[in-house]
């Protein structure tokens, strides 16, 4: 189980994350929603070690991750994607994924291990990236690039995965594919934290939702209950009509 306990981060006078708690079980999908600037990305940074909390702690399978680097956390099974897709120039998709799969199984310096190669093939298939295998990464369209980012994170073989707006700008078909991948990851025991503006996408996938606003956790519970609650509708959705992002 991944547990965030009373996580707090202040930037000067602003409290970006204010005593937030959540738990994520393996195999579970937890939605994290909230308006822009609510502290969602900061929360993910705190959990994955890209930022240090002023208060609170992160507990991964019973171990308190005090000051562990992001790479160490990834090797312990906690990975993430970034909101802005990262670009590596002059490599093909397959080469990039090979490099990303470094820690799958035992690291091999030269020839890829069989489980790593199989994992690359599987994720290429799941995200319909097979045809782009030999494409240069810098020539990808931005939706494809987003899929490649997700593929890289999946290839760490993590047990807990934080996806930062994985379907922003994706077509309905690609959104569907990401959704199917998230479901299959959860089915195989990965806990997924889904940060999304697309409430519809969260509604179809997440069992539970955490809503943050101005750094505070304002609702946390089963998806249907949370999305129907008055406080959430007021703070995040603004209107009582069907939400759009």
């Amino acid at each position: 189980m991944l547990e965030a306990r009373q996580l707090t981060r202040r930037f000067g006078g602003l409290t970006a994350v204010d005593h937030v708690d959540f738990t994520l079980e393996r195999g579970q999908i937890l939605g994290l929603i909230g308006p822009n600037g609510a502290g969602k990305s900061t929360l993910v940074n705190l959990v994955t070690g890209f930022d240090r909390p002023d208060e609170g702690s992160v507990i991964l399978d019973g171990h308190v991750l005090h000051g562990a680097s992001p790479a160490r956390r990834a090797r312990l099974g906690l990975s993430r994607t970034f909101q802005r897709p990262r670009l590596i120039a002059n490599v093909t998709v397959e080469q990039l994924l090979t490099g990303a799969a470094w820690i799958v199984g035992s690291p091999r310096w030269f020839v890829q291990s069989r489980p790593a190669a199989a994992a690359v093939e599987r994720v290429l298939g799941q995200l319909a990236l097979v045809s782009l295998r030999d494409a240069q990464v810098q020539e990808l369209s931005s939706p494809s690039l987003r899929l490649v980012q997700i593929a890289m994170a999946v290839l760490t073989g993590c047990r807990y995965l934080m996806l930062d707006e994985p379907v922003a700008g994706l077509s309905a078909q690609d959104t569907e594919r990401v959704g199917a991948l998230v479901r299959s990851l959860a089915a195989s025991g990965t806990g997924v934290l889904l940060i999304e503006h697309n409430v519809g996408f969260v509604r179809t996938l997440a069992e539970r939702v955490l809503v943050v606003d101005r750094g505070r956790s304002i609702a946390h519970g089963p998806t249907a209950d949370v999305l129907a609650s008055r406080a959430v509708v007021d703070a995040y959705l603004g209107t009582e009509t069907a939400p759009c992002h």
Partner: peptide, 19 residues
């Protein structure tokens, strides 16, 4: 494999860390 990982490290250390 390590060469390709090193490439990610050089171009984007944050991404490499996340991986």
């Amino acid at each position: 494999v390590a060469g390709r990982s090193a490439r990610i490290v050089g171009e984007d250390p944050q991404l490499a860390q996340a991986l």
